[in-house]
Computed example of a mutant assay.
Amino acid sequence: MSRIYLETLINADIQTVFDLARNIDVHQESTSKTHEKAIAGRTSGLIEEHETVTWRAKHLGVYQTLTTKIISMDKPNQFTDEMQQGAFKSLHHQHIFKKAEGKTLMIDIFDFESPLGIIGKAFNKLFLKNYLKKFLLNRNELIKTTAELNNNNNNNNNNKRTTN
C-alpha cells in the first residue's frame, strides 16, 4: 500500500474549501490535461455521502474508467471516497478540513495499491506515486486559487458596503 499525504493552507473559510473539494465541475477543470470527465453517477455539482461518480480519463496514454463512492461525510470537516471499480487494486482518499487561524487547512490522505503484485509495487515506487502526487497537487492548487479568489471578492464586496 502506498500513501500520499498533502497539506494545503487556504485563505478561505472551511465551508467554501469543503464544497470546492467535492465539486465535480471543479475536479473536471483541474484534470483537463487528462481529459477527465464524469460519465455516470453524480456528473456535476456537489457530491454527497453514499453517491458515486464514474470518471473517464486518459492516463499514461490509455483511457481508463474509475468509479468511486463517498463512504463517509461530516460536513464541513471531512469526506472519504473509495474506489468501487477501476484499475487499482484499492484506492481510499480521505479529505480532511480544519480551521486554522482564519484559514482552512486541507489535508489529503491518499492510499492506493496497484494490481500485479511485485511489478505493481515497483511501478508505484518508480513512477505512479509521483504521478498521482502531481495530479493531486494540481487539483489542490485550483481549489486554493478559486477559494482565495472568492474570499477576496467577498471581502471587497463587504468593504464596498461598509464605505457606501
Results as ranks from 00 to 15, higher is better:
2 S>E: 15
2 S>G: 09
3 R>K: 15
4 I>D: 05
6 L>M: 14
7 E>K: 12
9 L>M: 13
9 L>Q: 11
9 L>C: 01
12 A>W: 00
14 I>K: 00
14 I>L: 07
17 V>N: 02
22 R>C: 07
22 R>S: 03
24 I>H: 05
25 D>L: 06
25 D>S: 04
26 V>D: 02
27 H>Y: 12
28 Q>R: 06
32 S>R: 15
32 S>F: 14
37 K>Q: 12
39 I>R: 10
40 A>D: 14
40 A>C: 08
42 R>Q: 14
45 G>I: 00
47 I>C: 03
49 E>C: 11
49 E>F: 04
51 E>C: 02
55 W>V: 00
56 R>K: 07
62 V>Q: 14
64 Q>T: 09
66 L>I: 03
67 T>M: 11
68 T>D: 13
69 K>A: 09
69 K>N: 10
70 I>V: 15
72 S>I: 01
74 D>P: 01
75 K>F: 08
76 P>S: 04
78 Q>W: 00
79 F>I: 02
79 F>S: 01
80 T>V: 11
80 T>P: 01
82 E>T: 10
82 E>W: 00
84 Q>C: 09
84 Q>F: 02
85 Q>D: 15
86 G>Q: 04
86 G>P: 00
86 G>I: 05
87 A>I: 11
91 L>P: 00
98 K>V: 04
98 K>N: 12
98 K>L: 11
101 E>F: 07
102 G>D: 08
103 K>P: 00
103 K>W: 00
106 M>L: 14
109 I>N: 05
109 I>A: 03
112 F>G: 07
112 F>I: 10
113 E>R: 04
114 S>E: 08
115 P>Y: 14
115 P>T: 12
116 L>Q: 12
117 G>C: 09
118 I>S: 15
118 I>T: 12
119 I>E: 12
123 F>C: 08
123 F>T: 06
124 N>P: 02
130 N>M: 12
136 L>A: 11
140 N>W: 07
142 L>K: 06
148 E>M: 07
148 E>C: 06
157 N>P: 07
158 N>D: 11
158 N>V: 02
159 N>G: 03
161 R>I: 10
163 T>S: 15
164 N>W: 14
